[in-house]
Amino acid sequence: MWQERKADLVATMKLRRQSLAKGWYKYSRNPLSVLGLIVLVLIGTSAGLAPYITPYPAHAGAFTNFREAGQPPSWKHLFGTDRIGRDVFTRVIFGYRFSLLLGVVVLSLGVAPGVVLGLIAGYRRGTWVEIVIMRITDVFLAVPPLVLALAITAMLTPNLLNAMFAIALLWWPWYCRLVFAVASSLRNQFFVREAELCGASRAHILFREILPNCVAPILTKMTLDMGIVILLGASLSFVGLGAQPPTPCLGTMVADGAKRLPGEWWSTIFPALAIVLVILAFNLVGDGLRDVFAVEEV
């Protein structure tokens, strides 16, 4: 009996490995996607290890050194220093921490309810359940996202947590719509019918039969959305409704530096480039994932 379980486990692991290997093969066909992934891994690890690898970890907080304020880029300060003498390179790396955290938290808060509601609405298409869920979704989609995020964060105390909350509140309707479209087309597939006729529970049909078929578009959209969420977070910070000083945040840094343009260009340009780089990387990875799943779909 034990041996049988072991054989079962080995075979299951082998299957996982095979499908991973197949996916990676398709992904690696596109060199740009691979480049995006490398950049993302570099950004991720350096952000994670920021206190250990940055040259001046103390500069991430409320640190001042007016003697070195406003220095242009040099070997000592790769991206120069800001108006109170903090190393911009260090702060960019720390800024990534909060941007990535924002992206991950917002998407994990926003995607789950969106997906669940979309599954329910799609499966129960044509009933009042669908009408209620989808009309609420429409209401949320009708409000311009940045305006609503501004309103929410202005109403609450402006800090990183509330910014995450505000953006997450804006994000679920998109996933609801996406999953609704897939689920309502899968609903009439015979494998769903078969599960119903067999007597499987609603939860089984939604999460075991329909959801696995939605994973590909969800994952692709998530990677593409990461960039947008980071940008939105930076925008909130730019107008002062995101992370508050002295927390290093890319949006805040761009805003601070912008006051000193064009003279001290480095304290604006480098954080801005950092935002561009991470968004670009996420988009490249998203394209790669799309390739992987699209081929599999055919």
Binding site: T12, L15, F190, F191, R193, E194, A195, C198, G199, A200, S201, H204, R208, E209, P212, N213, V215
Partner: peptide
């Protein structure tokens, strides 16, 4: 009538579980 995202083992286990 067979879910493309599930293995045959998963497919066959549904009626047994239900």
């Amino acid at each position: 009538s067979l879910n493309p995202k599930r293995t045959i083992k998963q497919i066959l286990s549904v009626p047994l579980q239900v």
